[in-house]
Design a binder for these strands. Structure first.
Lengths: 277, 277
DNA sequence: ATTATCCATTCGGTATTGCCGAACACCGTT
DNA sequence: AACGGTGTTCGGCAATACCGAATGGATAAT
C-alpha cells in the first residue's frame, strides 16, 4: 500500500467503475461535467487541476482535445474554459432525432398555445421520467425545467402518468429506488398513498401534481404508448397554481389526454390495458 | 515503415491533431459523433468497430464508459447504441447558462408570437453565426434549424447582421474563410456584392436573407452588442417566402431591431458605431 | 438437424501513451 | 524587485489502452 502507484490511487478515488472502462475517457467526461456545472465566467486550468487532483499538464492535454471537438470553448484572457457549442449541437440533434420528441414537438406547441402553459414531453426510463423536449408558455413566469435529467416519478404528473401504467410490482420497485422523497407538504410519501393515487390516475386517464414538487406549481400529465401498448413516456403541462375547480382540472386533463393520444397515434401506438408486462 | 506499430498507424489515420491531445479521448469523442449521426434505430458494436477500424474490444470498453456517463444509451435487443440523455441535459444546461440565450429566450418568444415566425438567436464566433437557441413559430411549416453549428455568414440574416459590424478587413477575412459558397441563385457570391450589401444593412439597421440560403425561405436579422459595443451575436426571424412589399419588410425589420435592442439593453450593452475594432 | 455466419463478450500480453513533476515564461501584486 | 499566481513545454517511466484470439449465443441458411 505504501508503494501504491499514483494512477492506481487516482482510479480508486474515481469511485467504483463498471468492468473495463477507459479511465482516461472517464476522466475527460468528468471534466466536461465540471465545466458544464462551473461558474458562468468559466474555470481556469489551475482550478480544474486542483479540483480533480490531477497535474496541470494532463488536464491541459485533455482540455485541448475537448476544445478541438467543441465540447469546451475558451475565452480570453485567462484562458478560461466554458461549455462548448458541440454540447448544444448534439443535444439539439439528439432530441430532434428521437422519434418521440420529433413527433411531439408540434403537438406540444399546439397544447401550449391552447392552454397558455409550459408543456414538456418525457421518456420513460425504467419507470422514471426524463424530459426530452419543452415548449415554454407565453407567461411572464419562467420555470426551471431542465431536460435530460432523471426526475422523481412520484412528484411529477408525467412521472405519475408513467407509473400508473406499470405493474404493482414495478411500482413498488421504483418507489423503493427513489425512496418517495418528500419535496413539499403535499408530496405523497407512502407506498399505499401512491397506489391509491395510481388508482385515481387510471380512473381519470390523466395524472396531476398539485404542489407536490414545488409550492405554487401544478402540472397535469398523460401517458404515451408504442405499438406494443407499452408506455414509453408522457406529456405534461405546467403552470402556477391557481384555484382551479375540479371541473377546470378535469377539462385541462381531457385536453392533455387528447394531445397525448395524438402523439400515440402518430407513433402507430395503441393504449394498453395496463398490467400487461 | 514496414514495422510501423498498429496504434501508430491508427493515430495517423485519425488525421493531424494539434499538439498534445489525448488520443483515447479523441477516439471516444469521434465515437459519440458517430452515434449521434447514426441511424435512428442505433448502431451495433460491430458496425462501430468496422467503421472506425478498431478492435471490438477497444470500442466496447469506450462505449461502456460513454454509457455509464449517459452520453450513449443502449436498446435491447442487440444491443444497439443510441445518443444518450446526457447530451440533451448538457445541451440544455449549456444554452441555459449562456447569458445571451438566457436573456434572449423570453424576448424571442415575444417576437415569435408577434410575428408568427420561427425566431433564433446566434452567437458571433469569429464572424460566423452559431445559433444557440430557438423558438418555433406556430405555423404548420417546420424548418430544419440546427443549433450549435457554425453557419454560413453570407446567406443568413443573422450572419449578415454580424458581418456588418466588422471592419472591412475582417469581412474580407471571413469571406475568404467561408469561400462565399453559392446556395441558391440569389446567394451573394462576390466580395464586392457582399460589401455593397453590408452598406445596406448598416443603413437599414437590419439584415435580410431573401431566398439566398434556401429557396422559398426568407429571414430578417439584427445585431446584439455587449458593454464594449462589440457585436456578440444576432437574432433572426425566419418564415416561408411570401410576396412581401418593401414596406412590410421594413416593418418586420423594425420589429426585429426593437427586440434585438431589448436584449442588448438587458446585457448592459450599447450599440457601437461600427469599424471600432 | 447441422452447418455457417453473424453477433457480443472475456481475457492475456505487449508496447503505446497518458501521466506526472520539474522547469520555464508570463503576467499581476505586493 | 521579488513574489505568488498563472499557462505552457518537455523528458521519462509505468500504467493502461489496445489488439487478437477464443468463447458462447443467437439467428439464418443449408
Amino acid at each position: 500500500m505504501s508503494t501504491m502507484s499514483k494512477t492506481g490511487l487516482a482510479s480508486m478515488l474515481l469511485g467504483e467503475q463498471s468492468p473495463t472502462q477507459v479511465a482516461s475517457v472517464a476522466r475527460a467526461l468528468q471534466l466536461i461535467e465540471l465545466v458544464v456545472n462551473g461558474p458562468t465566467d468559466g474555470l481556469s486550468l489551475a482550478d480544474i487541476a486542483r479540483s480533480t487532483n490531477r497535474s496541470k499538464s494532463a488536464v491541459l492535454a485533455t482540455l485541448r482535445t475537448l476544445v478541438d471537438f467543441g465540447y469546451v470553448r475558451t475565452i480570453d484572457p485567462g484562458p478560461k474554459y466554458l461549455p462548448g457549442m458541440t454540447l448544444i449541437r448534439f443535444g439539439d440533434l439528439t432530441a430532434g432525432k428521437d422519434p418521440l420528441s420529433a413527433i411531439a414537438r408540434p403537438i406540444l406547441a399546439e397544447l401550449s398555445e391552447k392552454s397558455g402553459l409550459t408543456v414538456r414531453v418525457a421518456r420513460n426510463v425504467g419507470g422514471f421520467p426524463v424530459f426530452i423536449d419543452r415548449v415554454d408558455g407565453p407567461g411572464v413566469v419562467r420555470f426551471h425545467t431542465p431536460l435530460g435529467a432523471r426526475e422523481l416519478p412520484h412528484v411529477s404528473s408525467a412521472g405519475k402518468a408513467i407509473l400508473a401504467e406499470l405493474s404493482d410490482e414495478q411500482i413498488k420497485s421504483v418507489a423503493r429506488e427513489c425512496g418517495l422523497i418528500s419535496r413539499t407538504k403535499r408530496t405523497i410519501t407512502t407506498l399505499s398513498g401512491l397506489q391509491e393515487e395510481m388508482e385515481k390516475v387510471r380512473r381519470e386517464g390523466f395524472a396531476t401534481d398539485e404542489e407536490e414538487d414545488v409550492p405554487g406549481i401544478f402540472c397535469v400529465g398523460a401517458a404515451i404508448f408504442d405499438h406494443h401498448g407499452q408506455c414509453i413516456g408522457a406529456i405534461s403541462a405546467t403552470g402556477v397554481r391557481r384555484d382551479l375547480t375540479p371541473r377546470q382540472v378535469n377539462k385541462l386533463g381531457k385536453l392533455v389526454i387528447t394531445h397525448a393520444d395524438q402523439i400515440t397515434k402518430q407513433l402507430h401506438g395503441r393504449k394498453s390495458t395496463r398490467g400487461a408486462k
